[in-house]
């Protein structure tokens, strides 16, 4: 009986002691810093330029605290396919708000379909990583031109592509009859087309483009002796990360956004009969 009594007293003392111990603790740990240091990464690899830039920020403990120094931070990339390793250089820029921003830059032009791993670490310790895979060129199909002399269009289908491109630019290479030499006329198409079950489809407006070409050559639209050498389009597209920029699925122990911008070209031949109907002389070089 006495043993039981002692046992109960022991349990009671332990309980009260636990409550007291638990109750005395008045600290709050509002920051979950259990993992290794994480960084905010904002930027993208861009095929259109030869200098790549990302903004890096060490996470701050609260909204009013000053930026944390990045002096000991290293940023590098590894291209998965070739193993090419590059160290990025840090610099401070002044943002539109007048505040300083910390950026890292590297001189290289990423390539279509390649994967780049960005590593951010302080003093060689494990830190943040982000992976950007540049878009690959989708299979491209050019349908035969349709229409009459006033309205000839040619449909381009980019198979499997579902997102709107950033920019499409048509390039025509032509030679005026005055023997002034080959001229390249670039026509910005913007973001034409729609997503279909086949992919992204847009139309090339050959009649309108011819008028623009002749205008740029300083010729009258009735001129029919301009030689048509080639046609191609250049398409700038976002990588998959841009579909949901807040998802951060390609970031490891990092926050923000790291994507890429790819550019690809596609050239094709136009049937001589249609070129004649349009008012060009067929000068395309077929192998």
């Amino acid at each position: 009986m006495r043993k039981i009594h002692r046992h109960h007293t022991g349990v009671l003392i332990t309980f009260l002691f636990s409550v007291l111990l638990l109750g005395c603790d008045n600290t709050i740990e509002p920051i979950d810093d259990s993992g290794s240091e994480a960084f905010a990464i904002h930027g993208y690899l861009d095929m259109r330029v030869a200098r790549q830039v990302v903004r890096i920020e060490a996470l701050r403990p609260n909204v009013l605290s000053n930026p944390i120094s990045l002096e000991d931070v290293q940023v590098s990339t590894i291209e998965s396919e070739s193993g090419l390793f590059q160290i990025w250089k840090d610099s401070t820029v002044i943002l539109n708000s007048g505040e300083p921003g910390f950026v890292f830059a590297a001189n290289f032009r990423p390539e279509l379909g390649r994967t780049y791993r960005l590593i951010v670490s302080r003093n060689g310790e494990s830190g943040s990583e982000a992976i950007a895979k540049l878009p690959a060129k989708p299979p491209t199909f050019v349908n035969p031109p349709v229409g009459d002399s006033l309205n000839i269009k040619q449909r381009i289908v980019l198979q499997g592509m579902t997102e709107k491109p950033i920019q499409i630019t048509l390039s025509y290479v032509v030679v005026p009859a005055d023997d002034s030499g080959e001229r390249t006329i670039r026509i910005a198409y913007g973001q034409p087309g729609v997503a279909t079950s086949s992919g992204w489809e847009f139309d090339v407006d050959l009649v309108t483009d011819r008028i623009i070409i002749l205008n740029q050559l300083g010729l009258n639209v009735t001129v029919k002796d301009v030689e048509f050498r080639s046609v191609s389009f250049e398409m700038t597209v976002f990588s998959d990360e841009w579909k949901e920029p807040q998802k951060e699925a390609n970031l490891d122990n990092a926050h923000g956004f790291f994507g890429s911008v790819g550019v690809f070209e596609h050239a094709w031949f136009i049937d001589s009969g249609f070129l004649n109907t349009l008012g060009f002389v067929d000068g395309q070089k077929r192998n």
């Binding site: 920051i31 920020e57 996470l59 909204v63 605290s65 505040e99 920029p245 926050h255």
Partner: peptide, 27 residues
């Protein structure tokens, strides 16, 4: 619990990250 704070940039277009300051964000 917070993981920290950053200046968040909504990259839904070709935002120039060396110019646009971004918004304060709690993670």
């Amino acid at each position: 619990e917070s993981l920290g704070f950053d200046r968040w940039l909504l990259l839904d277009s070709l935002v120039n990250v060396v110019e646009v300051p971004g918004e304060e964000r709690v993670l």
